[in-house]
């Protein structure tokens, strides 16, 4: 009994210290990996500082939570490296009245980053176990303006369309026409094109006068290109 009490006491007293340590690492991550590489939006930087990235990563990989790299989350999926999340968020320039659609919930981290900056986030995950755990995690952490649907993201989420911005977090060989259709006029879609083990690039799709145009933004890969 005494031992149990001692362990509980230890856990209770060390937990705040652990959280402090994570906060420190998060601040260092924002300063060294994000701000330094050119992401300047104060709202994006604030979101990156506040969302506890380590809670979106499996226990066994948690030590890599704030490292400058993507981290495996199972089912052949990864949580993008911090800089890419921040960069993609900055590109769509989220506003408080925005409704944003995310394709590829994964761990739910990108949705959590967006949640503090916009009115509503709608996110779709095709891999059921990932979608279920992301739903639970986001609920537990209190992200109440995030709705998760387990479905084929190709079709978008027609009931909540049009969207001010669409963030696609899974690489694809085509831009799904239904998503373009659900993008509001002057809206922005950011989408990575490519596949793992290959060079990928982030592409911005904008819609003006009903016509879409594309612009390649940033070459990325499983390991980022730090272009000097």
């Amino acid at each position: 009994m005494q031992v149990t009490t001692a362990i509980l006491t230890l856990l209770l007293t060390t937990a705040p210290f652990q959280e402090d340590a994570y906060r420190e690492r998060r601040n260092a991550m924002v300063k060294q990996q994000i701000e330094k590489e050119g992401v300047r939006s104060p709202t994006v930087l604030a979101a990156m500082r506040s969302v506890q990235r380590h809670l979106f990563i499996p226990e066994s990989m948690r030590s890599y939570a704030y490292s400058d790299r993507p981290v495996p989350i199972g089912y052949g999926q990864t949580i993008s490296q911090p800089y890419i999340v921040a960069y993609m968020t900055q590109v769509i320039d989220p506003q408080p009245d925005f409704r944003v659609l995310e394709i590829g919930t994964g761990s739910g981290y990108q949705a959590a980053i967006l949640a503090g900056m916009v009115k509503a986030v709608y996110t779709i995950e095709i891999v059921r176990p990932l979608g279920q755990s992301a739903t639970e995690r986001l609920q537990q952490l209190g992200y109440n303006n995030v709705s998760v649907k387990i479905d084929d993201g190709y079709h978008g989420w027609k009931e909540h369309a049009p969207f001010d911005a669409i963030v696609v977090t899974a690489a694809t060989a085509y831009i799904p026409p239904p998503l373009l259709d659900q993008l509001r006029e002057n809206g922005k879609m950011i989408i990575p094109v490519g596949s793992p083990f290959q060079t990928q690039w982030l592409m911005l799709v904008t819609k003006k006068d009903g016509k879409a145009t594309t612009k390649r933004l940033l070459p990325v890969s499983f390991v980022p290109f730090t272009r000097k």
């Binding site: 890969s221 390991v223 290109f225 730090t226």
Partner: peptide
């Protein structure tokens, strides 16, 4: 390696 970063080379 200098231009793209050493870690990117294996991906070429």
């Amino acid at each position: 390696a200098n231009f793209f970063g050493k870690r990117s080379l294996p991906f070429f």
